[in-house]
Simulated scan of single mutants.
Amino acid sequence: MRLNQLDGGGGGGPSGGAPNLATAPAKKKAAANTIETELEPDTAKAAKVADAATTAAVGGFEGWATAAGLKTVETTWDSQVKSLLARLSSEKTALRGTAVAFGQQELDTRARIAGVRPTSSIERY
């Protein structure tokens, strides 16, 4: 494959502008903290309330097919709650890791740029 010419300009993004990668570490940290302090605890709390209500209903329908059905629902619910909590934890970890990775990348780039000195013919003397 051979490139015969440059594009007409303005490439780099869907709007035709220059590519721009922007990140907001503080927002990522805030989102991770929200997951940790609100979503995870509230999800676990809601799961316990549902488990208690379902357990009571299973006891109330003892000997009926409904009790077996509710027990199946409870097992499925518990599995889904565990999956949701694992997903929330994974997202929290990813948000924090991304914030750190972008921050480190920025520091590395700044260090590389600071290490580049413009060459000048005066330096030969």
Rank of each mutant, 00 (worst) to 15 (best):
S121P: 06
V81R: 08
W77D: 06
S90Q: 11
D51N: 05
M1L: 11
M1N: 10
L21N: 09
T98I: 09
K92N: 09
Q104P: 02
G63W: 00
T75H: 08
W77L: 13
G63M: 01
E91I: 10
D42H: 13
K71T: 13
G12W: 03
S79Y: 06
G60S: 03
E36R: 15
T76Q: 13
S120K: 05
K82Y: 06
E38M: 12
W64N: 03
S89I: 04
R2S: 12
A50G: 00
P19N: 09
G8L: 10
A114P: 01
D7W: 01
T37D: 14
L84M: 12
L107S: 08
R112T: 05
T23A: 13
W64R: 04
T43L: 13
R87V: 08
L6K: 04
W64A: 00
Q104I: 04
G12K: 04
T43Y: 07
S90V: 01
Q105H: 10
S89G: 15
G13T: 14
T98Q: 10
R124M: 08
Y125D: 12
G115Q: 06
V49L: 06
Y125A: 11
A18D: 11
A24T: 14
I113K: 06
A24N: 15
T34C: 09
D7N: 13
K29T: 15
A99I: 00
V49F: 01
R2L: 11
R110L: 10
G17F: 09
V73N: 04
L85S: 05
G97E: 07
K71R: 13
P41Q: 07
T119H: 08
A50K: 02
S89V: 01
G59R: 01
